[in-house]
Amino acid sequence: MFILTLFFGKIHKLCEKMVNSLNKNFYNTVLSQAFSPCGNLLVVGDIFGAIHIFLLKKILNSENNLSKEELTPKFCHTVKEDLQINSLLSTQTHLIVGCVGEVIGYTWRNLKANKFTQAWTIELPENKDGFNKTDVNCMILNEENGQLYAGCGDNNIYVFDLETRKLLKTLDKHKGYIHAISTINNELVSGGEDGLMNIWDLKTTKVVHKIEPSTDSKVARPNLGNWIGAVSANEDYILCGGGVRLSLWHYRFLSNFTVYPIDDQGIHVAEIYDDKILAGGRSRLFYHMNFVGDMITEIPTSSVTTYSAMHQDSPSKILTIAGSSPKIDICSNFMYRDQQLSLY
């Protein structure tokens, strides 16, 4: 009886509240993030084709509880209605938005003044069927030669000159669309839906080496597929994961070094950071491990799947984890979540 009255009490309380109508951001997913060069802005791109800009300064320096307003975006701008923003890249002067079918540049100066005029756009080459436009899934800038590498949905990796915005080269040996790329020295590592990890020589645009992790029974997960969702390389190792397990490979010997025993349903984020490994994907945890696979910390995430994790050291140390949720988790010590931003 008592419980019943309690229950009805709750109902009544709810009745008095004005019920929110379904907000479309409830189903939003953040696919990409970028910090401004000054480190005070966080830009995130979502599946509705909008970029949201958060002011980090207050969020990081405040000891007190922050108001809802401070935890929501300061500005919001729709780049392309209903076309998802797959990747973002921050350069010293520009924010480069990898949309669908094109790459768009905005100057940071304009963005900071809440002006959303496009500085330039790069149209991607038309698809063969001309019907399905190409996703720009990942972008990397080579600051030495000013080349922009873009891994795209049409199975190709395009190399643009950022100054002239001309297409320089096309790397077209993948049979599935490109999930992730990583550069080291003069080589580029790419991972695709086809389950291949190609190592390209950027000068010759030839595939130098090829790894197929799914052929390794320790790494393969047939129920999830062979796709490679994330790659990260340093001088000695290549980290990869996806449908296959998160695994570390020797750069030189191209042999499996470590398979990480984590319980996930697909890796979308993997990075070698200092001597540690950051990884996330379809799992309610974000993993922080050392090379041999000892867990340093598991950070619970708000999103069902983590699609993006970004970090910067200055002006303050910060790790932002975003994915299929309107919420963005912020860790300032890489150990636990201390703030949660929201898109609405």
């Binding site: 996703d135 839906e193 969702g229």
Partner: peptide, 11 residues
């Protein structure tokens, strides 16, 4: 359907 999945989120 043209593509069963696309994008980083395997949409």
């Amino acid at each position: 359907f043209l593509k069963n999945i696309s994008g980083r989120n395997r949409r």
